[in-house]
Design a protein around this nucleic acid. Structure first.
Lengths: 254, 254
DNA sequence: GAGTGGTCTAGACCACGGA
DNA sequence: CCGTGGTCTAGACCACTCG
């Protein structure tokens, strides 16, 4: 019957590097993702089955499965046993919440982020901060409060707590780079983050700093970040101007 | 040296069902997750290497890898080449954003959710709704507006648009079950959801419905849901009382 | 019954980190 | 150097869906 065709634009996969450092599953996955986003493989289309794809590409089935799984996890494909693999109808392009800092987020969207450091001091850890950072209550931690703007418009007020060993981070570093960028220079990279997103009214000087109405709504995030070894290295309490920032996520049922 | 021990409480894995319908990787993964959350394997601990685990359990390495990968994706473990696998220090228990309805969320936390249907009618699809649902602009869609409460306190105002084929859903069904529950009865299950989380001031009758201050802050979600075949079957615009609801997520760097 | 994805095995070689 | 996880192969059997 017409309409039962399966898709597999094999010509898109002619240039796979079998020797280079880039994993094969990743090469397949990214090419497939591009083809879907470009509409070369239309929404709702059915892909060829895994075995056939593996043969056409001269790869093993597990490699193909892994490539496809990447896109299933991203919400671009759905798989059903006995049926096949289909493209999700998600024309609406959504930029995902990635594990990047707000600074990078803003810089990546062709804006010019800037930072003003409001507070930069050593304080004893409260019980809450100590619990999140995994340090003793009352021990020295670094407290930062920053105002983040883009193109001159304030976007967020960022409060952060770091373990005492980061006391030597300077105001100048913080005003020219994002916090995660500074930490990366010191060999600390973010690997896992647990966060809670909510809303409340602006408090104290927040309305002034964000240039919004007194007591106006703000979007809030509480985030604990962990490094490569699973150690907590940052606890942040942030508030955002809701007309300047929002979070986009894709959820996939398991 | 002391402190270099690796952990693997093999006794926890004595009862694996090799013949049943539950996948082996899933059995290993859930037992391991329980052991981590119970503290049997402490935060920061290093696991034995994959080959040794596979031998001890009489399973293949790919099966063990998959079990571990599940927990890496959940943010409970981190893996580093040349180093090993370690438990993340995430004592703070966080309930994750799952692909469940608000109704189930509330019911699962030992509360009694209730729903009042405010509007239930057929309307022509606006351009925005049509784009999200993948139907023609102006075609008939079902419009629902509901007030959701828990233990008598209002939590959210839910606006939803569904394809016209769901016109026969009754008010009674919606007041006794969650929307996704009703749809599941009709063979539609949610598989992927794309959503945007933000904040704004309460508008029109929302403050009254949520029993908050006029123009007070609300947490907002815009969600498009897709079924097993990748077809959009629901577009929702919801607002939540921020003191009653927030979102928790875990992000893992790839 | 034919076709699909879901699981599992038993190896192999490589890249990276540390001693 | 060794130990670790990262990738890849070439099969196998099963469970599910459909005609």
């Amino acid at each position: 019957m017409a309409g039962d065709e399966t898709y597999w634009p094999a010509e898109l996969f002619a240039d796979l590097e079998r020797t280079g450092p880039v994993p094969l599953y990743y090469q397949v996955s990214t090419r497939l993702e591009r083809a879907i986003k470009a509409g070369t493989i239309p929404a709702g289309a059915r892909l060829e089955n895994e075995i056939a794809i593996a043969q056409k590409l001269g790869l093993s089935r597990p490699t193909i499965r892994r490539a496809i799984q990447e896109l299933v996890d991203k919400g671009l494909l759905v798989r059903r046993r006995g049926i096949g693999t289909q493209v999700v109808q998600g024309q609406v392009v959504t930029r995902q919440v990635e594990l990047t800092s707000l600074y990078d987020d803003l810089a990546n969207t062709h804006h010019t982020p800037s930072t003003r450091v409001l507070t930069h001091e050593i304080v004893p850890a409260s019980d809450e901060v100590a619990a999140h950072l995994g340090v003793a209550a009352g021990s020295d931690v670094v407290y930062l409060r920053r105002q983040r703007s883009t193109d001159g418009t304030p976007v967020a007020v960022l409060e952060n707590f770091l373990p005492g060993e980061f006391a030597d981070i300077t105001v100048e570093q913080l005003e020219t780079q994002g916090l995660y960028q500074v930490l990366r220079t010191r060999g600390v990279t973010i690997r896992v983050a647990k966060q809670k997103i909510g809303a409340r009214s602006a408090e104290n000087d927040e309305s002034t700093l964000l240039e919004i109405d007194e007591g106006g709504p703000v979007l809030t995030v509480e985030r604990t970040a962990f490094d490569d070894s699973g150690r907590a290295f940052e606890f942040g309490v942030h508030c955002y101007r809701p007309d300047m920032y929002s979070f986009e996520t894709t959820l996939v049922a398991k």
